[in-house]
Simulated assay, not measured.
Amino acid sequence: MRLFSIALICFCFVSCNREVEFDAILLEGPAPSEVQANITFNNMEAPFSVSVNPTALGATAFEVNSGLQGASFELIGVQQELIYEYPESDENFFVTIRAIAPNDKITEQQFEVVPPADPCEQIFGAPATWDDGSISFSFGFNGVDLQTVENPDLSGANPEVSNVLEITQDGGGNFDGFGVQMNSPIDFSADDKVVRLKFWATSEIPIRLTVQQDPNNNTEREAEVTLIHSGSGWEELRFDFNNAIAGFTGSGALGIPDGASFIPTGQYIRFQMFIAPGDDVPGTFYLDDVGVCP
């Protein structure tokens, strides 16, 4: 019995000693190392959905700050991720990762959020804008009035302070519209066949974009693409002229019937836009930043 008691005392002493040594190892252990944010962009255009999945050697938890204005740290476990939405900005954002070890030691590191390259680069110097206050290269028809105004809604796809083209149509004609004579031609001879622009409307409405080299279709066949604006204010619309159809002339032109699908391959010096073509829709709309890209 005495021997058993001595053995039990020795076992308890060794066990307690091991726990003390183990706790000491935890307290004296290193802080986490090799901290990574593992940033993934879930889409290629702003606003960007970004996944952050932090990792680190020796970490059992993480605190993450997105770098967005007013953001605070969020606590997550190992193999967990957070998703943030980053707006378009002239400056990059920085994600801060705090890797936490079991002994509460912390390694903090920042990682820059670098947006992916815009797949839609401009192919001439600058898009058509109205920042100089001029509308000399813009024209309206069938009851459409145009003027240059300051951006009335700094949100959505156009949050910048700048001048924009205001389009007011009276709804008195089925094909109210306006046109823009470009400073540089839209060149569809290569693969760059997307016209992108920013358009503002507050109701769902079809927008038809037509490109011309000359009004009579004598050199390049008029081509058109129609998209639907959701009515959410400023939206960026991309008209892909790889999916164009021939505009209406009454008899066809250059051997291409009206309404036939075709891919334009020439240069076009102006475009025309119809808001709700075929319907009498009055209202005020805005346009900005017209450019061409792949």
Rank of each mutant, 00 (worst) to 15 (best):
T107S: 13
T107Y: 03
E108P: 02
Q110I: 12
F111N: 04
V114H: 04
C120K: 10
Q122P: 00
P127I: 04
T129D: 15
S134M: 01
F137L: 12
G140H: 05
F141A: 09
G143F: 04
L146Q: 08
Q147E: 14
V149I: 14
V149C: 08
N151E: 09
P152G: 11
P152Y: 10
L154F: 01
A157E: 14
N158P: 00
P159F: 03
E160N: 14
N163Y: 07
N163M: 10
L165H: 10
L165S: 09
G171Q: 09
G173S: 14
G177T: 09
F178R: 09
G179M: 10
V180C: 03
I186G: 02
F188N: 02
S189D: 00
D192I: 02
D192F: 06
K193N: 11
K193T: 05
V195D: 01
R196F: 12
L197Q: 07
K198T: 07
W200Y: 13
A201H: 02
T202D: 10
S203K: 12
E204P: 03
E204L: 05
R208E: 15
L209Y: 07
T210C: 03
D214R: 07
N216A: 11
N217E: 05
N218Y: 06
T219M: 05
R221C: 08
A223N: 05
E224S: 14
T226N: 05
I228L: 13
